[in-house]
């Protein structure tokens, strides 16, 4: 099976050509965010307050990593269950934030529709392969919400992170292909 190398932030051209089931190696910049960070972002947007950093066009990785051991960029760093972020994802995608998402497991119909309507992309990482994925992380720094600990937004620089396209901009869904 061919593996497609892509860069993050992911270009519209790459988004257009990727299809559910494609194997991808992703390199570039990702921002982690999970339950607590999404809630903070949603609360700030609801109150028309500025976000602590510009996330427009950026890729989100639903993950809460382990702390970095002394000789590593980061600790174990696998995906968390994406569906917990479904309640926030549609609204963010509409605003051009986190249009490309990385996580594990199926999304609800509203997110799948938003991906199709707004030229988004949902990539699945291997659930439970946190140690393996951590070796793809070359650099990690806290970008926002430091007080949230593992739930803070981390800026990760990754190289050749193994992913599978789970939902594409044409409505294709890996979890429905089975």
């Amino acid at each position: 099976m061919d593996t497609i190398k892509i860069k993050s932030p992911v270009s519209n051209a790459d988004i257009a050509k990727l299809r559910a089931g494609d194997k991808v190696l992703l390199s570039g910049v990702l921002y982690t965010a999970r339950d607590a960070a999404h809630k903070r972002i949603a609360d700030l947007m609801r109150d028309n307050k500025p976000l602590p950093l510009d996330l427009t066009g950026q890729t989100v990785y639903y993950a809460g990593p382990c702390p970095a051991p002394p000789d590593k960029a980061i600790g174990s760093c696998g995906p968390t269950t994406s569906s917990r972020m479904d309640v926030y994802a549609g609204g963010l995608i509409q605003k051009g934030i986190f249009r490309v998402m990385i996580g594990k497991g199926d999304r609800n119909g509203a997110v799948i529709d938003a991906i199709q309507q707004h030229n988004g992309l949902y990539l699945a990482a291997i659930g439970g392969a946190g140690a393996l994925i951590s070796l793809c992380v070359k650099k990690a720094e806290i970008a926002a919400f430091a007080d949230l600990g593992a739930e803070a937004i981390y800026k990760l620089t990754v190289q050749d992170m193994p992913l599978i396209v789970a939902a594409d901009c044409k409505g294709g869904n890996l979890y429905e292909l089975q």
């Binding site: 809460g64 382990c66 174990s76 439970g128 392969a129 140690a131 951590s134």
Partner: peptide
Amino acid sequence: QDLLQNADIAQKEKLALCQDT
């Protein structure tokens, strides 16, 4: 294959198998 390799890496590098410890 990735999950088997993950277990090997965790043991060798003394990393948690999963970030959700």
